[in-house]
Design a protein around this nucleic acid. Structure first.
Lengths: 211, 211, 211, 211
DNA sequence: TATGAATGAGTTTTCATTCAT
DNA sequence: CATGAATGAAAACTCATTCAT
C-alpha cells in the first residue's frame, strides 16, 4: 500500500493474455482457412489448432464471419504500415513515375505471393457472406484510397498530363492493378515469369496514367 | 490427379422427358444460387424449386459442384453463340478499332448486368471448390481465347502498331476487361454511370492496345 | 399352315429369353455381391452389370432378398448334382472310411475356395435379413441332410462302431466340417496349407465318427 | 492399407459426464443392433435410444462401424475378466480334463445364450464391413488364444497324449467349440436340449484332444 | 474466464422400388 | 414384356454454436 500509484497503466495480465489468445486464433484461422477454404474450415478446427477451447474462441469472436473479418482487419493494419513505409521512401525519390509505378506493382505481387491461399479464401468469404462482404468493402476501400493517393502524387509531377480527373484515374489504376495481381497470383504463378508480368502491367497502367 | 470431386454429369438424358428435367434443375439452380449463394444454396432446395425429386437431381448430377459446372458449361455455350454473332457483325464493319473495342466492352457489361448474382456465385464456387475451379479455368480460357481473337483482329488493322506480341496483349486486355467488368457489376452498379464506366475502360484498353 | 403340329412343345422363344435374363441377373448378382457385399451391392448395379434394365430385373425378382435366395437356390442345385456324382463314385469304392471322409472334406474346401466371397456374402445376407435366413435354413438343411447321408453310409460299414445315434453324429460332423471349412476359407487361406488343414479336420471328425 | 473406415474412437472421454455418454451409446447400440440387425440399426436410432443427441454420438464414434467395434471391444474386456476367473477356479481343480472341457463348453453356451442376437449381429457386421472384420479378427484371436491356453494346460496333464502339436490342436478345438456354439445358439436353441448338445460337443472335442 | 460436452437442425447423398411410356 | 425416368423416405454425418461446470 505504500507504493506509488502507477501512472502509466500497464496492461493487466488478463488483457495481455487475451491479446495473445486472439492472436493465436487468428494465426490458426489463417492456416486452417488457407488449407480448407472458408467454407471448409471449421471453428472447432481453428480452436484446436490455436490450442484453445472452442468455448474460448467464441468468447472472442461471436461467429465464424467475425474471425474472417478479424483476419482482414489485421491484414489491413499490416498493409497500412507497409504503405506508410512506401510513402516515406517515395518522398525523397527522384526516379521517373513509371519506375515508381513499376515498383508499386512489384511490391503488390510480391506480397500476394507470400500467401496466395489467404487471398483466395478471403475473396471466397467476401462473396459467400454478406456480413463479410460489407466489412470487406470498407477495408478494401481504405487500401485502395491509400494506394491511389500514392499514384495521384506521382501524376501531379507530370507536366502536361492528359488525364483530366486524376483522382478517378488513380483509383481505376489501383483497382486494375489489384485485380490483375490477384488474377496472376491465383492463376498459379508458376507458368509465367513474374518480372515479365510486372512489366506488362506497368506498361498497361503507365500508358493509361501518364501521357 | 488431386482428389477432386467428379463434376461430369452422371448420366446423359436420352429421352426427351429427362432433358427437360436437367434443364429444370439448371434453371432452378441458377435462381437458388443467385439467391442464397453457392454455399448457402442446397441441393434439396434446388430440386424443390425445379419441381423435381431430389433423387432425380442426383440421377443427373453427382453432386453440387457438378450442378455448378453444369451452369458454367451452359453459360459458355450461350457466350459462344453470342461471340459468333459478334464476329459476324464485325466482319463487314468499317468503324474505328476504338469504337469496336468500346462496343465489345459495352456488351460485356450489359450481359453481366443481366444477372450479377450469378457471377458473384460463380466466383464463390470457383474459389471454394478445387473441382469447380479446375473446370472453371478451362471454360474461362475458352471464353478469353475467343474474345482475344476478336481483339487481335482489330489490332491487325492498325498501321504502325507499337505492341510486339499482339496475342499476349489481346489476352491481357481481355482479362483486364473481364475483371473490371466483374468488379464494376459486383460493386453495385447503381452508384456509377455505366456509360462513363465503359468510356473509362475503353480509354484504358485502347491506349494499351493501339498506338 | 400345312406343317405338322409339334408334339414336343419346344420352349417358346419368350420363355427361353426369360431364362437367359434370369441367368444373366444371377450371374451379375454373384459378381456384384462378391465385390460389394450384400448390403453394398445395389439392384441397379446388378441390373446394369447384367445388361438388363432395372425394370426387367424387378419383373423377375420381387426384391433384393429374392435375388439372394435365387443365388442360394442355384447354388443348392449345383451342389446336389455334385453330391449325386459323389454318391455314384462312392458306390463302388473300397477305400477306408477315413479316406473317404478326407475326400469329402477336401471337396468341400476346394469348392468353397472357388468363390470365397460368395460365401461370405451369403452368410451376411442370411444374418441380415429374416426372409433370407428362412429360405437359407431350408436350403442348408437339405445340403446337410445329403452330406450326412453319405457319411452315415460310411459309418454303417464300420464293425463295432461306438456311436449310438449315427444319424445325429453324421449331422453333427457335417455341420462341423461345414463351419470349419467356411472358417478356414474366410480366414484368408493363404496363410495355412490346405492339405494340412484337411488332414486336421479329417483327424477331428474321424476320431469322432469312427471308433 | 486398404481403404478401411476408421474405427478407432474419435475422442476419448476425459470428463465423467462423457464417459457416461459413451456407455449409454454402447448400451443402446447393443439393443438396437440386436433388434434391427447391424444394417437395419441406424445411428440416429441408437442416439435416440441412448437419450443422447446424434451429434454427441458422432463426437465419440466416427461412424457406425466404430460403434460396432466398440461393442466388440467391450465384449472382449468382459470375456477376459471371465476367463481370468475361470483360470483361478481351475487352478485348484482335481476334476478330469474331460469334465473341465465340458464345463468350459457349458460356460460358452450359457454366455452366448444371454444375448444370441448380439452375436448374430456381430457376425453380420464382421462379414459386412472390412473394417469391422479387421478389428474383429484381432479381438477374436485374443479370445481364442486365451481359451486355447486353458485347454492346452489341461492337455499337459494327460499322460501319453497322442497329439503332437498341442498348441495347434487346442486352437482348433477352441475354434470348433466356438463355431458350434454359435451355430447352436443361432439355430434357435428351443428345439434341442442344451445339456445334450454340450455332451455331444464335449464328446467331439475330447476324443480329438485327449487320447 | 476457460473448458469441452452437448446440441440438433440441416446437409448431402443413396437406393430399393414404382410406373408411365 | 422392356425400358429407364422418377421417386422420396431415410441414412450417415457435419458443424456452428450454446451452456453447465
Amino acid at each position: 500500500m505504500a507504493k506509488h500509484k502507477r501512472v502509466k497503466p500497464r496492461k493487466s495480465p488478463v488483457q495481455e493474455r487475451s491479446r495473445m489468445t486472439v492472436e493465436a486464433i487468428l494465426e490458426a484461422a489463417e492456416l486452417v482457412f488457407a488449407e480448407k477454404g472458408f467454407t471448409g474450415g471449421t471453428t472447432n478446427h481453428i480452436a484446436e489448432r490455436a490450442g484453445v477451447s472452442i468455448g474460448s474462441l467464441y468468447q472472442y469472436f461471436p461467429n465464424k464471419d467475425a474471425i474472417m473479418t478479424g483476419l482482414m482487419e489485421r491484414h489491413l493494419a499490416h498493409e497500412q504500415v507497409h504503405l506508410a513505409e512506401q510513402m516515406g521512401k517515395l518522398a525523397g525519390e527522384t526516379e521517373k513515375p513509371r519506375e515508381i509505378l513499376r515498383r508499386l506493382i512489384h511490391t503488390m505481387v510480391s506480397e500476394q505471393m507470400i500467401d496466395p491461399e489467404l487471398h483466395r479464401v478471403l475473396i471466397e468469404a467476401v462473396l459467400g457472406s454478406p456480413a463479410v462482404m460489407q466489412r470487406g468493402r470498407e477495408i478494401l476501400d481504405q487500401e485502395v484510397e491509400g494506394l491511389a493517393g500514392l499514384i495521384e502524387e506521382q501524376m501531379a509531377g507530370i507536366p502536361g498530363i492528359r488525364v483530366k480527373d486524376t483522382g478517378r484515374a488513380a483509383r481505376m489504376a489501383t483497382i486494375t492493378g489489384f485485380l490483375l495481381t490477384h488474377w496472376f497470383v491465383l492463376s498459379g504463378a508458376e507458368e509465367i515469369d513474374t518480372d515479365e508480368y510486372v512489366d506488362e502491367v506497368t506498361d498497361l497502367l503507365a500508358r493509361y496514367l501518364f501521357k
